[in-house]
């Protein structure tokens, strides 16, 4: 139980690091490409994927068990 809990907390930290890296990447890409909309929206979609999957647990919608 303790190990499982620690693993879940660790996963949250990894997702946060991923989101931080992508946010910095957005900032850099904006400066380098004069604000390219397609590139910045691709990065935003990746960030959304991370949040929807790991934080919002969207997969629970089509899962039988409870929490």
């Amino acid at each position: 139980m303790q190990q499982k809990k620690a693993a879940v907390y660790r996963q949250g930290i990894y997702v946060l690091i991923g989101l931080a890296i992508l946010t910095i990447l957005e900032f850099v890409v904006s400066g380098a490409t004069n604000g390219s909309a397609p590139l910045l929206f691709i990065i935003a979609l990746i960030k959304t994927g991370l949040i929807a999957n790991y934080f919002m647990h969207i997969y629970r919608l089509w899962r039988e068990e409870s929490h």
Binding site: E26, V29, S30, L40, F41, A44, K47, I51, F55
Partner: peptide
């Protein structure tokens, strides 16, 4: 998290693009 996701798109739209 949904409110956060909305900002994920609003931030580049307002500040970066």
């Amino acid at each position: 998290h949904y409110v956060d996701v909305v900002w994920v798109f609003f931030y580049p739209a307002l500040y970066l693009i």
